Simulated assay, not measured.
Amino acid sequence: MARQKRPLTPADKEAVFRIATKALPDRYAAKIAIGMTEDEFIAALGQILGIFGGSCGPDRLDVLHQAAGLKIWGGWHIVNHVTEKPVNQGIATLAMARLIYGISNPDDAQMALF
């Protein structure tokens, strides 16, 4: 049965991100607890995303990721990383990871509001 191309919902986009970065909370748990600077965080995400990788399967999202550019692609179809725009890329990938995994930046002078 051929896979149908359909748009990603916000929940799908979060699922794509979590699939691509699922090793981050385990591998960097100690660093996440105390916070990571931008440079540390970029290096950590690069290690997690790797040179190029992905996953897919029947009735599962197709997910591709690469450290260069911190890019993550996803879709309900077979994703073509050459012609399709990433779901997350660059600073948006960093922001999403900080939001989803609650990773603070010790260099950030902004006080916590809550």
Rank of each mutant, 00 (worst) to 15 (best):
D26M: 11
A33E: 14
G69N: 03
I103A: 08
Q89S: 15
T83D: 13
V82K: 14
T9G: 06
A109G: 07
G74K: 06
W76H: 15
K71T: 01
L45G: 01
D59V: 08
N88P: 00
M111G: 12
L64E: 12
H65W: 06
G50N: 00
Q4E: 14
D62I: 02
E38P: 02
F52P: 00
G57Y: 06
A43T: 09
G90S: 05
D107P: 03
V79I: 09
T21M: 15
N88R: 14
W76G: 10
R3S: 13
A95F: 03
I103P: 01
T93P: 05
L24P: 02
R6G: 05
L8H: 06
G102V: 03
F52C: 07
H77W: 15
V63D: 02
L8A: 08
G35Q: 07
N105D: 15
I34F: 04
I32P: 01
V16C: 09
Q110L: 14
A95R: 13
K22L: 11
T21E: 02
D59K: 14
D62Y: 13
L94N: 02
Q4F: 12
A95G: 06
F17V: 07
D12Q: 06
T37N: 08
G74Q: 03
I72D: 01
Q110P: 00
T37H: 07
W76F: 07
I72C: 02
A15Q: 15
A43R: 14
F114M: 10
V87N: 03
T93L: 08
Y28H: 14
F114V: 10
R98G: 05
Q89G: 01
V87K: 04
